[in-house]
Amino acid sequence: TELRLDINGREIKVDGADKETLKELLKLAEKNNDEKAIRIIRHLLER
């Protein structure tokens, strides 16, 4: 399955993203107070 998050109005594919990319996405999600995106990205970073 493909995991996509809508961050800042942009749909971004997050599964398969490297750790650096995920960290950047996490910063974006935190800036937007997007709890769902934050939770998902943190979960991916823990893998």
Rank of each mutant, 00 (worst) to 15 (best):
T1L: 14
T1K: 07
T1S: 12
T1F: 13
T1I: 07
T1R: 05
T1C: 15
L3Q: 15
L3E: 15
L3M: 06
L3D: 15
L3G: 15
R4G: 15
R4L: 15
R4D: 15
R4P: 15
L5V: 15
L5F: 06
D6W: 05
D6V: 15
D6H: 14
N8E: 06
N8F: 04
N8Y: 02
N8W: 02
N8P: 00
G9M: 01
G9T: 00
G9I: 01
R10D: 13
R10G: 07
E11V: 11
E11K: 06
E11A: 05
E11Q: 08
E11C: 14
I12H: 12
K13D: 09
K13M: 13
K13G: 04
K13F: 14
V14L: 05
V14H: 01
V14W: 02
G16K: 13
G16Y: 10
G16M: 14
G16I: 15
G16W: 12
G16V: 15
A17F: 08
A17V: 06
A17G: 14
A17H: 08
D18A: 05
D18M: 04
D18G: 04
D18F: 04
D18C: 04
D18K: 03
K19T: 11
K19H: 11
K19R: 11
K19Q: 10
K19F: 12
K19I: 13
K19D: 08
E20H: 09
T21G: 11
T21I: 10
T21W: 05
L22K: 00
L22V: 03
L22A: 01
L22C: 02
L22T: 00
K23T: 07
K23F: 06
K23E: 08
E24P: 02
E24N: 09
E24Q: 09
E24I: 11
E24W: 07
L26I: 06
L26M: 09
L26F: 05
L26R: 02
K27P: 07
K27V: 09
L28E: 12
L28F: 11
A29S: 07
E30W: 06
E30C: 07
E30F: 04
E30Y: 07
K31M: 13
K31W: 12
K31C: 11
N32F: 14
N32L: 14
N32T: 14
N32H: 14
N33H: 09
N33F: 09
N33R: 09
N33Q: 08
D34S: 09
D34T: 03
D34G: 02
E35K: 07
E35Y: 06
E35G: 06
E35N: 08
K36S: 11
K36V: 10
K36A: 12
A37W: 02
A37V: 05
A37L: 05
A37Y: 02
I38P: 00
I38E: 07
I38T: 11
R39M: 13
I40S: 04
I41F: 00
I41S: 00
I41T: 01
I41W: 00
R42K: 11
R42I: 09
R42S: 10
R42G: 08
H43Y: 04
L44E: 07
L44F: 14
L44K: 02
L44Y: 14
L44C: 05
L45G: 02
L45H: 02
E46I: 05
E46N: 10
E46S: 08
E46T: 07
R47V: 13
